[in-house]
Amino acid sequence: MAVLKFDNVTVQYPVYNSRSMSLRNQLVRISTGGRIEGEAGHIQIVTALNQVSFELHDGDAVGLMGHNGAGKSTLLRTMAGVYHPVSGTVTRHGKVATVLELGAGMDPELSGYENIIRMGVLMGLSIPEIRGKTAEIEEFTQLGDFLQLPVRTYSSGMATRLMFAVATSTQPDILLVDEIFGTGDAEFQVKAKERMESLIKSVGIFVFASHNNALIRQYCNRFFRLEHGQLVEIEPVDIEAK
């Protein structure tokens, strides 16, 4: 049974400029007694999520909306356990798969087939397991002979197909998908929809961040909107009212 629960979660992260990422400048700062601190070590703290609380269970398909920089990707990464909150608790039961960033976990020099194995291993499958799924992934992506070429030659849509196919074939309980999914063409969207529907039906939580309201309506049954790190759940009728 998949559960994803956020209780008053706040995520903050530091943004360093190039000067504060320099050890030399940090040392200079110490040796000058911190007098040029304002110049040498300007670190800004960004509060990306502010006291976010919600509870997701099996069968929840969540559409995540918000402007650029509203905190959608941060929320997805916090759900995945990549980012850790500074306060509040995240409770997560179930296996997570992510499709967050184009090319994540892929080695651009390796072929499509080799990357299927690589990503499968990274997502927790054994090599025989992932070999058993290769035919199905091949069929789903419809990349054909392109799977023998290095992934660096792929278009973003092709890479998305491959990532999505591997991520869903690991049979996750929780699937987190960011906007890059939108780079797939119409045919892919139809196939992806089937896959996700069966995934949501089997058991699972699905979270999808997008600016495409039509897609969100198609896939999701709950809708969250993020504004300046604050999360509100909205009704389907309110989606258009941006």
């Binding site: 990464r77 995945a80 356990g81 990549v82 997570v96 992510t98 967050l100 960033e101 090319g103 994540a104 976990g105 892929m106 990274l122 997502m123």
Partner: peptide, 9 residues
Amino acid sequence: ASIIRNLNL
């Protein structure tokens, strides 16, 4: 980075 930022390992 591409592994660290995307997978919880």
